[in-house]
Every structure is written in C-alpha cells, then in structure tokens.
Design a protein around this nucleic acid. Sequence first.
DNA 1: GTCTATAAGAGGATAGAC
DNA 2: GTCTATCCTCTTATAGAC
Lengths: 199, 199
Amino acid sequence: MVSILENSTRDKIFYASFKLFLENGYEATNIRDICKEVGIKASTLYFYYKSKQYLFFYIYDGICLDYINYIQDIEALKQDISVKEKLYILLKQKIEYYVLDISKRKFILRYHLFPPEEISNVIREKYKFYNSEENKIILDSISNSQHKNEFINQNIDDYLMQYKKLENHLVYEMIISNIKINDEVVRKLWDMLWINVAK
Amino acid sequence: MVSILENSTRDKIFYASFKLFLENGYEATNIRDICKEVGIKASTLYFYYKSKQYLFFYIYDGICLDYINYIQDIEALKQDISVKEKLYILLKQKIEYYVLDISKRKFILRYHLFPPEEISNVIREKYKFYNSEENKIILDSISNSQHKNEFINQNIDDYLMQYKKLENHLVYEMIISNIKINDEVVRKLWDMLWINVAK
DNA sequence: GTCTATAAGAGGATAGAC
DNA sequence: GTCTATCCTCTTATAGAC
C-alpha cells in the first residue's frame, strides 16, 4: 500500500486495522483490539486518525489507490501492440496482482456486498469513483492504440462489461474456493471472450 | 421458511431478525432494533429466544431446512428419466428457487464468507452439514436411476463439484449483479458442463 | 507522541411485577 | 406473555498530564 516499508505508529495502526476490518468486519472490530495489536493506547490512535470511520476510509482509499497505480504502471498499456494482446496482458497482470495477495480484493468485496449502514453511502461513492478511474485507464489505452480499428466502436462499453464480468468471476473463484488461477486458464477464457466481441 | 403464514410474536421476531441480520449484519444488529421492528420490549424477545446467538442459529437452520425440503420435494429426482435430464431439471429448479427470492441465499453467502468470530465455528459446522445433506439427495437420485450407466462412476464426485461450481457462479452473478438468470442461460451452460463429464 | 483516567452512551441479558 | 427497571460490560472518543 502507500508506505509498506515504513514502520511508523501511523502505518502499524493502518495495517492492524486493515487486517481486523477484513477478518472480523468493521462493526466487530473495536479500537482497543487494534491498539492491542499495535501496542498503543486508544488515545494514541486518535492522535493519528480522527475517528474509526476516517481510519476505515484511509484504508479503503489506500487499497484502491494502490490498485489504480498498479494498473497505470502496466507497460503493455502504453506499447503499440494489438488491442487483443494488450487487453490480454492487462487481464493477466490483474490476476497476477490478485494471486500475489487476494486480501485487498477481498476487503473491497466485503464492503461492497455488505457495507456497514452508517458508512454505506460513502463506500458506494468511493466504489463508483475508483471503478470509473480504472475504466478511464483501460479506455484510454484502447483509444490511443494504432490498432483500435480491431474493435467495433459501439461495442467497447459492452466489451468492458464482459471483461469485468470475466475478471470478477475469476476473482470470486479465488476468494471463495481459495484457488489460484494460472495464466493458462486466463488465456483460454479470454480467447473465448474475444471471439464474442471483436470484429 | 418454517411457518410463513403464522403471525405469532415468535415468527415476527424471526423475520425481523432475518431481515436485519441479512442487511446490517450480526454484530451491527442489536436486540433493541429487532424489538422496535416487532413492537415489543427486549425482555419479551428473551422469552422466546435464549440469546442473540441462538436466535441467529434458528434463522440459519430455518433457511437451510427450507432449502433442503425444497430439493427433496422436486418430483424429477424421483422419476425414472435420464440422469442428464434429471440433473438439468434439478439445476433449473434450484435457480428458480433463488430467482423467486435470492435473500436466503445471500444470507448464507454473507455468513459463509464473513462469519462473526464468536460463532464462526458453529456456522462452519452447519454449512458443512447442510451441504452434505444436499449432496446425499443428489447422489441418491443418481444411484437410484435406471440410467445411471450414463455416468463414468469415478467421475461422479468430480461432476458434483463442477455442478456446484456452475450453480455458485450463477448465484453469485444473481447476488452481485442483481440479474435474474433465465432457463435458456441455464440450459446452455448446463449442456456445456455435461459434455465435459458424461461418457 | 504517548500515557492515565474518564465521560457518555450503547449493548446483551435478567429480575420481578402484572 | 409482556412490561418496567436495572445490571454490568463494552465502546467510541476526549481531557489533560508527562
């Protein structure tokens, strides 16, 4: 995430909270449990984070920004290769990102499916925002390509939906069945998807 | 569920709790909120249910038993038709059950993925139990069939796993994308599955 | 920056009247 | 069966000392 190498109290609180919010949930995680993990008292936590809600939002944003940065740095998106190959590499890299550590994605899934009532509005807004940020990056990468005529233009949105659906399917399988998806499976499924959308 | 037509205080508590446990979660739902929905005081709830945990378990069991009863009553499982047709009808009926009201399945998913720490052991046991009950019904139905030689015997467990995977995939799509799956889609996916497993 | 102490309230659960 | 009143514990959050 933002500063994985630092070991400041601020970061320790961040990671302990992430872990507990993921495993036990927002409501079932209390400030004292977090503090016990870190080895501080409650008042110290409040020195760094204004409230439990703000602490949660920092974590949520941290996870999403880390993901957006990862997507943005994928070299294949900038190279002048065919759209088909470009998008395959993107999907493959995204799955690699999740295989390496599925916990961040599980966190997002948890709070997307079952947001705590008191912060559900904020979570919904954040989810929509980061989702559209990711879409922008993908759409930019397609429209900047010399090969974009591979696509029937009207179908791009449709395709993006299918693409996300496939990705989600793989991700849910990883989360629920605890299985790590390999490149071969990704390639096979993706080829099937491409046939249905490309010219 | 057990007694959908009754309107006793006991049942009112049951349904109000189901709704709140599903929407807000176990930890975020408190006894007083449930009582407010029903129009009673906390002590009245404790007259019917020993504790918050037991109330939850009654609901969990109620949902699962309703489902098991539904599966058990599917006529096709008892008829002497081909295994392929039998299992297709089973899948179709299961999807119909969810399409009619996805909330029960969402409840099970919620507590399967994110069980409250204090009751996670019990939930895990219950999940395993009802899962194996369902498997028994399906396996019985296959082995009682005159047409069971359609199957390569060693593959039945494998098939059951694939079958559940397909079902889960459809269910997650219904829950996450809020889409109702129609029979045509079920048929198509199921034909693909059958090709991979049958002789 | 980190602590002790504590306010202010919410939560699960029970006793006992009617 | 349902109520009022209450217990006791846990929770978020703050005040103020060091």
